[in-house]
Design a protein around this nucleic acid. Structure first.
Length: 288
DNA sequence: GTCCAGGTCGCGC
DNA sequence: GCGCGACATGGA
């Protein structure tokens, strides 16, 4: 479970991790409608990391398409995020994070916030296997196929998800009570009532972004904190069963702390609370 | 069968 | 603000 969690987003369709090659594959639908297959692989050293992106497409790519892919991959890997302040705090605190090296801490995210909101809602009150099943169902049934291998699909657009009949969610993908939440979200985004992607604006105040996220049906405290984390705002910790379990064991000798007490452990980390927790968790020896 | 998961909503207080 | 039951689904 811990291992799964540490690579969680990597496992959610249409992401596909090729284990023996340390490679991330993913079908991507470009804004113009072209559907391509990306193969993303790390390269270079720890000091000078680099990323190779292989693009598979029926036709030669235009410059605009190249730029879009470059921007998308950069967004997914958070190559533009500056974590140097967090690394500095780690050094200063003397925290025993021996394995922590520059470059860690860039948790994978999706090309769009829409996709991440959908996925986050599908993690709530659900075991990981259920999340995998539902996300795969959405991708397989509503995502556009990649022409080179029609078995593979992109993540569905809000339009495709809004246009799908309600039975698709209840009977085929079987989202349970989350179906109406997901459908309403897709409808509002499609109708232009809700501009999720504008929430990526770094100029917005975090409180403001949180408020907008909480206004989405199906997004509560945990989900909003998780989404803020995906947006590069680490001051809130998604308090879930995993967090509670870890904190109980790691800091409270098996006695259940309140959520408030547990979160307070990381108070000194200020706007980096989540990353502090994250590395704390990763440091913990793996179980089986 | 029963319990519950990487919670949230809609109540009533 | 806080406590509580309901909630679809599938896995343990």
């Amino acid at each position: 479970v811990r291992t799964v969690r540490s690579h969680g987003w990597l496992q959610l369709a249409p992401n596909h991790w090729v284990d023996d090659q340390d490679k991330l594959e993913r079908v991507l639908r470009l804004s113009g409608g072209a559907v391509v297959l990306l193969r993303i692989q790390g390269r270079g050293s720890a000091e000078r990391p680099a990323v190779d992106v292989g693009v598979h497409h029926e036709h030669p790519l235009t410059d605009q398409q190249r730029h879009e892919i470059r921007d998308t991959v950069s967004h997914m890997l958070r190559l533009d995020e500056d974590l140097s302040d967090f690394y500095r705090l780690c050094r200063e605190s003397g925290y025993p994070w021996a394995r922590l090296t520059a470059g860690m801490g860039r948790l994978l995210r999706s090309p769009t916030l829409f996709e991440d909101v959908v996925k986050t809602i599908l993690t709530t009150n659900m075991q990981w296997s259920g999340t995998l099943r539902m996300v795969s169902g959405l991708v397989d049934h509503l995502g556009e196929p990649y022409p080179g291998d029609p078995e593979r699909h992109a993540f569905p657009t809000p339009e495709a998800m809004a246009a799908a009949p309600a039975e698709m969610y209840s009977d085929t993908v079987r989202l349970g009570y989350r179906g109406p939440y997901i459908r309403e979200l897709a409808e509002r985004v499609t109708a232009g009532e809700l501009d999720l992607e504008s929430l990526s604006d770094r100029g917005l105040r975090t409180e403001m972004v949180r408020k907008r996220l909480l206004a989405i049906k199906g997004v509560g405290r945990y989900a909003s904190a998780n989404l803020l984390m995906l947006l590069g705002r680490y001051d809130a910790i998604p308090v879930d069963t995993e967090f509670r379990q870890f904190m109980t064991k790691r800091y409270f000798c098996g006695a259940y702390p309140s959520d408030r007490e547990a979160v307070a452990v990381y108070d000194e980390w200020g706007r980096w609370k989540f990353l502090a927790y994250w590395f704390d968790l990763l440091q913990e020896p793996e179980e089986t």
